[in-house]
Amino acid sequence: MSLTVAFVALLAGVVVWGLLARKLTAKPWERSAAPEEIEAGSTAGLPPAKIGLWALLAVVTSLFGLFISAYYMRMEHAHGDWTPLAVPRQLWVNTALLVLSSAAMEWARGGARRAQMDRLRTGLTAGGVLAWAFLAGQLLAWRQLSASGYFVASNPAVAFFYLLTAVHGLHLLGGLFVWGKTVFRMARPGVELVDLRLSVELCTVYWHYLLLVWLVLFAVLLST
């Protein structure tokens, strides 16, 4: 595992260096005789909220990455107490719901880009509702699992199932909070597309990200 981490760190370092090499090799103490060019301070011409979101996604990636490492290490260290989990079928339905939810958000983003307010409204509403449906489906999966006698303390595979789905669900709830605020703003009379565009874009990015996380988690849960 440590080698993987080292490799990923090395890769990240190379990428960062590649992106920033010109900036990081500047010699600030030298002055040229030519008239000074004053560079804008910001590193990328993006709204701060976008940079903030990408930074948050990096943090969340670290969190889920560590949960997944813990999952595999616990499996490896298990002394015969790891019983592979029969993943509830419901999860396949839920996955489809989340994919649709993400697609609806993308549809909304397209609406925001092409200044089609109706499309934005439909997409955003559908995306949120489908995400709620996904969460309801996850709860249903929990109930099915506990009905068949698997509680959180029964066995580590089950415990990880509850834990990972809960953490993913909480992140989705956070997204739905922002979604709720956006919908609330959308419902106000006289709202302009320009007021919503950034929120819709940020929600879409976050939705796609959580879909990706879910697909990885699902694969991990299936691989016991």
Binding site: L20, K23, L24, K27, P28, E39, A40, G41, S42, T43
Partner: peptide
């Protein structure tokens, strides 16, 4: 990353 004033390059 985003709010430095004009001329304040990273270096």
């Amino acid at each position: 990353l985003q709010a430095r004033c004009r001329g304040m390059t990273l270096m």
